[in-house]
């Protein structure tokens, strides 16, 4: 596994992808999208990332549910962040539309969160996590919405998913293969998954996680820190 990501963030030319620089000349928060099939652990990853990073970073979360606000409510119940840092977007039965084809509602949610935190003197946000509702293997985030994306799959979905590929698996900036603790029970070959993922993704990183384990999110948290270091360095 390697977590390095050499690419710097590409320049953005679309109108919707807000300038990486705020009106006050400071760089805006880094936006990271989390997508993947239903139930693979996207919300669990978001919750664990918030717990791991909230003391060092100012974080907000946007959830995209298929049905109303389940994910947002889970995060609230778990108290991973105060309520004012969590926003829920409704997607009209079509989560991939809201993160890829028509990103306006998500952009608004992100910008409203950013505005609230710049204005209130709490200090600006460093990181905004955008969770997609569970979807299919082709669901990816628009570059107009996020700066980098994580695709979360799990071992229980079958060890052939990395081999099947699809835009999520092949192009995401980080592929997370979650629930490795279940591998023995579902007869999954983790080595084979790693090999298939490498064949599909080339140099792009892959992280194996068991989120139920103590500090199981560490590889993902380290990757996020790395992205953020690049993001702020690019500002200088």
């Amino acid at each position: 596994m390697h977590l390095d990501h050499q690419d710097t963030f590409p320049e953005r030319h679309t109108y919707s992808a807000a300038d990486p620089v705020r009106a006050d000349g400071r760089r805006r928060a880094l936006r990271i999208g989390l997508g993947g099939p239903v139930g693979t652990g996207k919300t669990a990853t978001v919750a664990a990332l918030c717990r791991a990073l909230r003391d060092e970073l100012s974080i907000a979360v946007v959830t995209n549910d298929i049905y109303t606000r389940e994910d947002a409510e889970f995060l609230l119940r778990e108290a991973v962040l105060p309520a004012e840092r969590i926003a829920a977007v409704e997607t009209g039965a079509c989560p991939h539309t809201a993160i890829r084809d028509d990103i306006s509602a998500n952009l608004e949610a992100v910008e409203d969160l950013e505005a609230a935190f710049s204005a209130e003197g709490v200090g600006p946000l460093d990181l905004v996590l955008v969770e997609s509702g569970g979807d299919n293997l082709t669901a990816t985030f628009s570059k107009g919405l996020v700066d980098a994306q994580i695709f979360v799959i799990d071992v229980a979905g079958g060890d052939d998913i990395p081999r099947k590929g699809g835009p999520g698996v092949t192009t995401a900036d980080l592929l997370v293969i979650n629930k490795t603790d279940l591998a023995p029970y579902v007869g999954v070959d983790l080595e084979g998954m790693a090999r298939d993922a490498r064949a599909q993704r080339g140099e792009l990183p892959v992280a194996f996680t068991a989120l139920k384990a103590e500090n199981g999110v560490k590889p993902v948290a380290d990757w996020v820190r790395h992205q953020l270091a690049h993001w702020t360095a690019d500002a200088a």
Binding site: C94, D102, S104
Partner: peptide, 10 residues
Amino acid sequence: RFPAGGHAHS
């Protein structure tokens, strides 16, 4: 497909 948010409304 004009991206103005209509898809989420019935």
